[in-house]
Every structure is written in C-alpha cells, then in structure tokens.
C-alpha cells in the first residue's frame, strides 16, 4: 500500500500535465481546475482511515498470538520458529487504548505486523512435508491453519473495499 499523499500528488500531476492541456471544452476545463484545486487542498489534510489499518493490525495480531501459543506449546526444533516467536513478542500491542488514532502511526504498525506475519508464512511454507529438512511435527498443520485463516479474513476485508477495475475504459481511452 502506497502512501496516500504520494498517490494524490500523482493524481494531481497527471491531471495537470497529461489531462488539462488536452481538454478543450471550457466547462470541462473549469470543472477540472476546480477538482485540482480541491484535491490540492485535501491532499495535505487526509490520510488512510485509521479504522481500516487498525482492523488489519488486530487481525494479524490475533493470528500471531495464536501462532506464538502453538509454537510455545509444541516446542518445535527449527530455530526459525523461535525467531518468529521472539518477533511476535516484541510487537507493540494493537489495542487502541494504547494510543488514540491520531497518535499511533497505524500505517507503520501495520507494516511491522505484516512483516512478522510474512516471516511466519515463510517458516511454515518452507516446512511442507517432503521439503528438504522438514520437521515432522503436527504443530505445522495447526500453524498452517492459523496462517490460512488470517489470509482468508484479510482477503475478505480487502474485497469489501475493492471497486471493479475500469480496464475497458483504461484500455480503449
């Protein structure tokens, strides 16, 4: 996910340099400049909705907490899992009471959580039965289930916000 300010600056630049010079209708051009004016002012005031980022953090945190419990209970030998456990323990709490939406950088926190979750995904995926050095330990099945559960939940969350891509218009112009 890109920084919102970066995206909005790109929109402004494209409208200003690629679109505006090619709009000949005066009313359309007037509307375009009104949009540019409005977007320019909004760009410095808005950011991603904290609620969306916080929900994702909560989802990852919950999956990681479960994973840490499974790893602690089963004590598998692979060092990578103890490293993941340590990384989970070092994460800040996603509890909103730890800071208001204004004081917590949810964007950065989401990134940190997601990185530890990705490390867990890789540690579990690399231990698939039949793969080199695989540890025959039932905990991997439970960890895999835990990973899949979060991936599914996050996919559903993302799908809720996703608008259909305007491929046809973007292709045909």
């Amino acid at each position: 996910m890109l920084n919102l300010d970066e995206l909005l600056q790109g929109v402004l630049e494209s409208l200003e340099t690629d679109v505006a010079p090619n709009v000949s209708d005066r009313k359309a051009k007037a509307q375009l400049y009104a949009c540019l004016d409005l977007l320019g002012n909004l760009a410095v005031k808005v950011d991603w909705k904290a609620q969306i980022l916080r929900d994702e953090c909560d989802g990852i945190r919950s999956a990681l907490t479960r994973a840490a419990q499974l790893i602690a209970a089963a004590s598998p030998k692979r060092r990578v899992l103890s490293e993941v456990s340590a990384a989970i323990a070092a994460l800040p709490s996603s509890d909103a009471r730890q800071g208001s939406d204004e004081t917590v950088d949810w964007f950065a926190r989401r990134r940190r959580y997601a990185q530890v979750f990705e490390d867990l995904v890789r540690a579990v995926g690399d231990n698939s039965p039949g793969s080199e050095g695989a540890e025959p330990h039932g905990v991997y099945d439970e960890l895999r289930e835990c990973v899949h559960e979060h991936l599914v939940n996050q996919t559903i969350r993302d799908a809720f916000y996703l608008k259909p891509m305007r491929l046809s218009e973007m292709s045909k112009g």
Binding site: F117, V121, D126, V147, T155
Partner: peptide, 15 residues
C-alpha cells in the same frame, strides 16, 4: 513492503 499472500503462494508452488 510485506506480501504474505505472495509468500504463501510461492511456497505452495515450490512444494
């Protein structure tokens, strides 16, 4: 940034 779904799929493909 992190891409857990890609990592999951790439692990699956390798396995």
């Amino acid at each position: 940034g992190p891409m857990p779904m890609m990592t999951e799929a790439l692990c699956w493909l390798r396995n």
